[in-house]
């Protein structure tokens, strides 16, 4: 899977904002962690396991927690059609 090219992450004035383009344009303010994860995967093809592995190493999570967080993140991305 890949992150949609129809979403662009912006940082301005201390805020991270994801602008999502589709039939209409939406803006979603996200936190630093989301932005960091998004930037890491923005140019990559990846699996859920890749996301879990990244979380484990970046945030010092145990494997089980990293898998749960990765599943939630992928779910959120899918819900907002951020994944292709």
């Amino acid at each position: 899977m890949k992150l949609s090219g129809h979403c662009r992450l912006h940082k301005s004035r201390g805020k991270h904002v994801l602008i999502m383009y589709g039939r209409s344009t939406h803006a979603l303010e996200v936190n630093e962690s989301f932005a960091h994860i998004w930037r890491h995967f923005s140019a990559l093809e990846f699996t859920e396991a890749d996301v879990a592995s990244f979380l484990e190493s970046t945030y010092n999570l145990d494997a089980a927690k990293a898998e749960r967080e990765a599943s939630q993140i992928i779910g959120l991305w899918q819900e907002h059609q951020m994944i292709i």
Binding site: H10, S12, R13, I19, Y21, A27
Partner: peptide, 23 residues
């Protein structure tokens, strides 16, 4: 806007519109 101090409030609608403009 990138240079405006963070304590100067800018309406989110304007900020987000300008981000979309930048894209």
């Amino acid at each position: 806007l990138e240079h405006l101090p963070e304590d100067i409030p800018v309406p989110p609608a304007v900020e987000f519109a300008l981000m979309a403009e930048a894209d």
